[in-house]
Design a protein around this nucleic acid. Structure first.
Lengths: 140, 140
DNA sequence: GAGGCTTGTCAAGGATTGTTGACTTGCTGT
DNA sequence: ACAGCAAGTCAACAATCCTTGACAAGCCTC
């Protein structure tokens, strides 16, 4: 199953919700209906069919996410986490500035060490953030 | 833009390819056509429209991935990386077994230390893999 | 200025999707 | 035995998706 088939599977709001609900644990048909506030059985049946490759039925007859389902969930989460990576970068930067400032004021003889560690880490972290993860610092 | 809108955008193989090609750098309309081996302008136009929120036109008139585009790319990559997490777990486990075996044979007095480090790491890594990332060791 | 790329826009039509609501089948409690 | 719920299945229909192919500006270049 290629990635676009998975994205096709989670390209409907209801199906994303089904994945998220099933990530909590196995469920029966009626539980899903109740949890998702769906009246029509046909509708849930239609979308469960679309999730055929991501959702299995376990030996108790309950619907469960299979490995592909969890992979899809991870893709969903990767997308929603994306915005946080920029914030994490700023928080990290701020932490290092404060740390070095504190060291400078209280035990200045250690500054060369903490500064070197900070610089090394921020260099690697910047490379990872901007080049490997393609995060831009421009909010829009 | 909620995640299902993004997944709708990348739910077609051609659109995933467009994202992947544009991740390499800005491109003109005809470049995209050539790279993707598309004959019909209408077809490319249709799919670029669908990617409206993920692809922008820069000040040189070239198509570029914007932040949401990169977020979508990351979701695509997160999905395709998923299968490797199980393999990574086994490789890690194997590495620790070999290391401890080697320590046992050559410098057995260090074994308590390396064994403790291995156990700690594998405990944390197992927790992360199975509970946080929902990876299952069953291949199917 | 004619010819030929580039960069599109648009209409048409078949294929697919999403939704509803009626219907089935099997189980459970009384 | 019967009602009622669970767990679907199916037909029908509107909406939308995808693709093709025709067409139109706007440029270079000879």
């Amino acid at each position: 199953m290629s990635s676009d088939e998975v994205f096709e599977a989670v390209s409907h709001p209801l199906r994303v919700k089904i994945i998220e609900v099933l990530a909590k644990g196995p469920m029966r048909f009626a539980d899903l209906k109740r949890e998702l506030r769906i009246d029509s059985s046909g509708l849930l049946d239609f979308h469960l069919r679309k999730l055929d490759d991501l959702v299995s039925i376990n030996n108790e007859g309950l619907y469960v996410l299979n490995e592909k389902g969890f992979a899809a969930l991870q893709a969903v989460e990767a997308f929603s986490r994306y915005g946080w990576q920029r914030r994490a970068f700023y928080i990290n930067l701020l932490f290092h500035i404060i740390t070095n400032f504190y060291v400078l004021l209280t035990m200045a003889e250690w500054l060369p060490l903490t500064l070197a560690i900070s610089a090394t880490w921020m260099t690697f972290y910047s490379y990872w953030t901007f080049f490997r993860r393609h995060v831009s610092l421009k909010p829009k």
